[in-house]
Write a protein that binds this DNA or RNA. Sequence first.
DNA 1: GTGAAAGCGCTAACAC
DNA 2: GTGTTAGCGCTTTCAC
Lengths: 341, 341
Amino acid sequence: MDRGARTITIIDVAAKAGVSVPTVSRVLTGAARVSEKRRRLVLDAIEELGFRPSAAARMLASRRTKAIGVLAGDTSHYGYAETIRGIELAARAEGHTVSITLIESADEDAVERSVALTLTQALSGVIVLKFDPAGEAALERLPSDLPVVALSGVPSPNFPQVLMAEEEAAAELTTRLLELGHRTVHHVRIPPGNHEDGRTTGWRRALTDAGAPVPAVLDATWEPISGVRIGRALAATPDMTAVLCGNDEIAMGVMRGLGEMGLRVPADVSVVGFDDHPLAQIWMPSLTTARQDFADLGARGVKLLMQAADQTEEVGHSVAHPTVIWRESAAPPRVTSEAGE
Amino acid sequence: MDRGARTITIIDVAAKAGVSVPTVSRVLTGAARVSEKRRRLVLDAIEELGFRPSAAARMLASRRTKAIGVLAGDTSHYGYAETIRGIELAARAEGHTVSITLIESADEDAVERSVALTLTQALSGVIVLKFDPAGEAALERLPSDLPVVALSGVPSPNFPQVLMAEEEAAAELTTRLLELGHRTVHHVRIPPGNHEDGRTTGWRRALTDAGAPVPAVLDATWEPISGVRIGRALAATPDMTAVLCGNDEIAMGVMRGLGEMGLRVPADVSVVGFDDHPLAQIWMPSLTTARQDFADLGARGVKLLMQAADQTEEVGHSVAHPTVIWRESAAPPRVTSEAGE
DNA sequence: GTGAAAGCGCTAACAC
DNA sequence: GTGTTAGCGCTTTCAC
């Protein structure tokens, strides 16, 4: 791109300003005081020359980096995108840039390729969105000499992490549904990783604690359309009056599936989701859900990463708590069941 | 982070493999052939030492970079996130990393800060999501010696760009609504930039061409909730039977607003959106819209940027065409209007 | 093919 | 405060 037009370097600036190279460096970094007179001279020279310091040279000489990497199994769906936004916001506030690598699947090759690409960069650390199997796999392949933080709904013993307390929120949602008079609550699960997700665990625990029957878990994909199929199937299930879905998008799919079979929400069936997707309150009926502050999650991740990168000390964990939001999609069952207290 | 534990360099690898430093470099870059024997030696040494070459040193010495920057006024909403995903996918296929900077507003300071941060990095080029005023402002602040590509619905004369042909799609949507028998079509617009967006232009043109009255444009924000308010207001508008919304999320908001006032879609009012949001086909009723392939948009942007960075030649433009998808939310008006042809 | 020598554009000691 | 001297860890000539 600069055929002929040689790049402007710090040497050119020093020459133009009539000072030494380190002096220019000093006004650039602010590492040492420079007399106001020379400072102006340097600034003017930079301005006139349109000089931009070489990031590569700065990193090499200073051995410091201001970039954080993000590894994620998805970047476009709501929770992921919003988490990444939170990371970017917090990182930028610290003067760090954010470099994103998508992991296309949990397949060994795919994970390896994405991790390898991430590692080609000069990074001060990496945040892994451990929301899915791809993220889990990536976390294990990262070298141990690099600061790493995991963002996850499931504990990761070996890494600093921000834990999303999904289990308790799922339990709360389930319990309140039971208290409303539902005999049990069905669960449509998002794709699981190596461990059962907190949403499923919390749901099962709440059911068991209440002595309610535990229906078989139904598996959705990340695509809302998978919820539609499941909703249609659920409509044919006897005694089905309440459904807890792994996320709001699946819940919307399930509602559509139920609707296609002539069932109404919440009159015939209560449906609750998870995350508080921006469209959850717009949906008709508006969706009862457990709000997750993904942007905050990302910001916490950055904070943890900065700690991990700065100090030699052990880095703490951080826990984010979802908030249950009650909306139109959940109500008492229409027909009072014979099993009262 | 390496207190005491000195970083492993190419010198260590060369020593361990019993070859010279340039030879290690050659197997790293593949720039020149190395005998199979030494090649193995080097690879083994790299493996055993866990050596990762310094990105900073490589960039500095080679004067080449494999990173592209993305500047966007939003990163979390569907069209943006999906475009960024497309950029990442295409960039990764070329061995490039992707660094994202959010521009929080079109405010001069905010734009300046984001652009400046982007420019601190060693980038081979920048892709600007020129979907909004923030993106437009950023585009103008980028230095001219850096390869830049704009992704936009409005032509940017001075930059290589991928143009989204929104105008024709909006016109098609509007025309088909008129053909269905609607007397006119109302328009709820997404936040405009310096120029009128193609969606609004296409809508107006179609109306004018058909001799239909042109109602006042209604302004939404990017938040779907703003559509709800507008939907409620529209419900009180006489003779209102069709609405074209600037995007699907606004359309969903408008549908909710109409619904709250007792109007049904499409029986009382037809509502169409733009983009084909993943939930558009799940919504009840499913949403008629103009599908935009944002991932492809991002991929095209990368392709253009590679051209701009590689060659001294003039870089071509690229045009992406939305596809109209007819779904349940649009239908003929219930009451045949008195004004026929 | 392979090694020696010379930088890439900065920052970090170190004197003054 | 400011300049001088050394690198940072690689890639790139250039000989051989």
